[in-house]
Amino acid sequence: MARVLEICAGSVQSAVAAQAGGAHRIELCQNLEQGGITPSHGLIERVLQRLTIPVFVLIRPRPGHFCYDADEQAIMAADIAQCRALGCAGVVLGALGEAGHVDLDCCRALIAAAGPLQITFHRAFDVCQDQTRALEEIIGLGCHRVLTSGGQASALAGQAQLAALVRQAAGRIAILPGAGITPDTLPPLIKSTGAREFHASAKRLVASPAAANKTEFDAPRWETDAAIVAELVAQLNS
């Protein structure tokens, strides 16, 4: 089976660059600085107009922990319905209970709302107290993949656990390593984990216009670089 590169994109520009570099799909979100939240209707719609590769959308109503109340669950269900109506290929979701286990009731409701869309369980998995148990529960929910760093700050640091998860999954679900994947870290991860799909942002810092006056609203802006994406794709194909 061919290896797959998913690019996390937070803008139209990053999404277009990901496709130009040869990415196989994108995860679309906003507010990457705080781990990502659900992108706006306008952003989703515009990206779908510009891209031909599959677009998965992050379903996360706010930054912070992954325990959601009834209002937040309703928001996520509505956002998933919007993704279906717009023609997205998949959604990226996850919810935990206060004890640090998968919130099965919430996840079942969200997955039902997604209908035929592909389902990725996001990095809430890395907060789970028992990843062995959590993986079995996520498989039982019918998810197609798990985005994870192996419970560590980066996929490279978590590579031993990622390899263990790939073995446990045994082809029943895809393990999607993510966090800190670059052209320097991807080759050892390919070799050590046995994973077939990888998640990266491939981003670079974008300079502000020279003539722009600096204000309190200025913040560093990072965008996906097509050349970095192309290098990652070449490594996956080598």
Rank of each mutant, 00 (worst) to 15 (best):
I59V: 15
A195M: 02
Q49D: 15
T185F: 05
H199D: 08
I59F: 03
S149C: 06
S208D: 09
R108N: 09
R60W: 13
A210V: 12
A23S: 08
S149D: 01
I26K: 11
E6N: 05
R167F: 00
Y68F: 13
R221E: 07
M76T: 06
R46V: 15
Q168A: 06
P177A: 11
V16K: 08
A164S: 11
V206R: 15
A17D: 01
I119V: 13
L5T: 08
L32C: 09
R221Q: 12
A195F: 00
T224I: 10
R167S: 14
V55S: 05
A112S: 10
A227T: 12
T52A: 13
A227W: 00
I228T: 14
A78H: 12
A124Y: 06
F125A: 08
E197H: 11
H101C: 06
L189D: 03
Q118R: 15
S238F: 04
Q19A: 13
A113Y: 06
G87Q: 07
P220Y: 05
I138A: 09
H65K: 10
R123I: 12
A211Y: 14
C128S: 00
R133T: 14
A95T: 14
P116C: 02
V92D: 02
A210I: 10
V146P: 04
R196W: 01
I7Q: 05
I228H: 04
K203Q: 15
G10R: 08
G10Y: 03
S154F: 01
L86A: 05
G140Y: 00
S14K: 11
A134W: 12
Q235M: 12
P177C: 04
M76E: 01
A113H: 10
D103K: 09
L32H: 03
G22R: 00
Q159I: 00
A15F: 03
D71R: 14
L147T: 03
F125I: 08
G142I: 03
A78M: 11
D79C: 05
C107V: 01
L86I: 09
I190P: 07
F125C: 06
D105I: 15
G97I: 13
Q118E: 13
F121I: 11
A15R: 06
G151F: 02
H65I: 12
Q73L: 15
G150W: 07
L28R: 04
A18Q: 06
A174C: 02
R50L: 10
T182G: 08
C128R: 04
T224S: 02
E27I: 04
P183L: 03
G180N: 10
L43Q: 14
V233H: 05
L32E: 04
C8D: 04
